[in-house]
């Protein structure tokens, strides 16, 4: 049975539906990311779980018990806010101790747990610092320690890393993942950074305009996007218009001069979606001309004009000579590297 369950949850603000038909089952200890563009309803969903917003429809259950009837102060969830929301008038230790105080944890045990929590996030020795005198990364760690010290049943993180610079963000991602692995807290992370979602999560929930587009492991959502939105949102992708040619037997999937055996279950116009790093330059395939060639250190980026519209190709910088700008090439990929959807590209 699912540990945390959202059952057809919907939220309306006045006439505007911000989240709709949101169903998700989270296993105990799982790390889930909500990924989607700004304004798609990630925060709203998280706040419904936290209890700061009431769902318009649907149910939220924790271990089978209905959560919606429970006051947010009694839910026992740990939350890290985008702004960290530290108490500016309390020291780091007092911030972390606050939740334990509310639970009437005895003073001695409290001190021990606060010390351990701060040590866990690498802030031993910073007990008496006030938030204003800490760096963004340190504040972030205090917020995390404060949420974790109460041993929450679920940890909710709303874009916790978005205020950090790129380097620090990467370090914190690794640290966050390690801490979560160690203590095994069920975690939901809200982010609009696909790399963050990929590198941290067991499963990703891709959202768009208040609805779930796809739920799957990072590999699944990347390799087999369920919709054009997902494939576009998770990294760069090429969408080629293709058709199923039934005149030959067996039927073939054709995009310009490129073709492959047709997958079952499609007819009429389809979209072939291929990641740029899965396309190679070969002797046969989609005819294309290289428009620009950009060197990016460990790889080359080619922008091409193909028979089926613009295409992007990424090649590892493995020392081989690469085609030059203006050269005509053939683009080819393995059938297992593409995903096929019904209908023409958007």
């Amino acid at each position: 049975m699912a540990y945390l369950e959202l059952d057809r949850v919907a939220k309306q603000f006045g006439a505007q539906t911000v989240v709709d038909d949101f169903s998700l089952a989270v296993g105990k200890g799982e790390f889930i990311s909500f990924l989607g563009p700004s304004g798609c309803g990630k925060t709203t969903t998280l706040q419904m779980i936290a209890g700061f917003l009431d769902p318009t429809r649907g149910a939220i259950r924790l271990e089978g018990k209905d959560l919606t009837a429970i006051h947010p102060a009694k839910r026992g969830l740990g939350i890290v806010f985008q702004s960290y929301a530290l108490f500016p008038h309390m020291s780091a230790a007092e911030n972390v101790a606050f939740g334990l105080e509310m639970r009437n944890v005895p003073r001695a045990e409290r001190a021990e747990r606060v010390r351990a929590a701060l040590a866990m996030v690498g802030l031993a020795g910073y007990e008496d610092r006030h938030p204003r005198r800490m760096s963004g990364g340190q504040q972030q760690r205090v917020a995390l320690a404060r949420a974790l010290v109460i041993k929450p049943s679920v940890l909710l993180l709303d874009e916790p890393l978005s205020n950090l610079d790129a380097k620090l963000r990467e370090d914190m991602q690794i640290e966050l993942r390690q801490i979560q692995r160690t203590i095994g807290t069920t975690t939901i992370l809200v982010t609009h950074d696909q790399n963050e979602a990929m590198s941290l999560s067991d499963r990703i929930v891709v959202m768009s305009q208040g609805r779930i587009e796809q739920i799957g492991t990072p590999e699944e959502t990347y390799e087999r996007p369920a919709s054009a939105f997902v494939s576009q949102f998770l990294g760069k992708t090429n969408d080629f218009a293709a058709t199923i040619d039934r005149t030959s037997a067996p039927a073939r999937l054709v995009a310009g001069s490129w073709s492959a055996p047709a997958p079952a279950g499609f007819s009429g116009p389809v979209t072939v979606s291929v990641r740029p790093e899965r396309i190679g330059f070969g002797d046969a395939g989609l005819a294309a001309k290289i428009v620009t060639r950009i060197f990016q250190g460990n790889h080359w980026l080619f922008q091409c004009e193909s028979e089926c519209g613009p295409a992007i190709v990424i090649r590892q910088n493995d020392g081989q000579t690469q085609p030059a700008e203006g050269e005509t090439v053939r683009l080819a990929w393995r059938p297992e590297d593409m995903s096929v959807r019904a209908g023409a590209p958007a």
Binding site: F52, A73, I79, F81, L86, F87, P88, G99, M102, R103
Partner: peptide, 14 residues
């Protein structure tokens, strides 16, 4: 910043 209050609520204050 309202989220500071939300944080306190989530930690059990009311």
């Amino acid at each position: 910043d309202l989220s500071v209050e939300m944080a306190a609520v989530s930690l059990g204050a009311g």
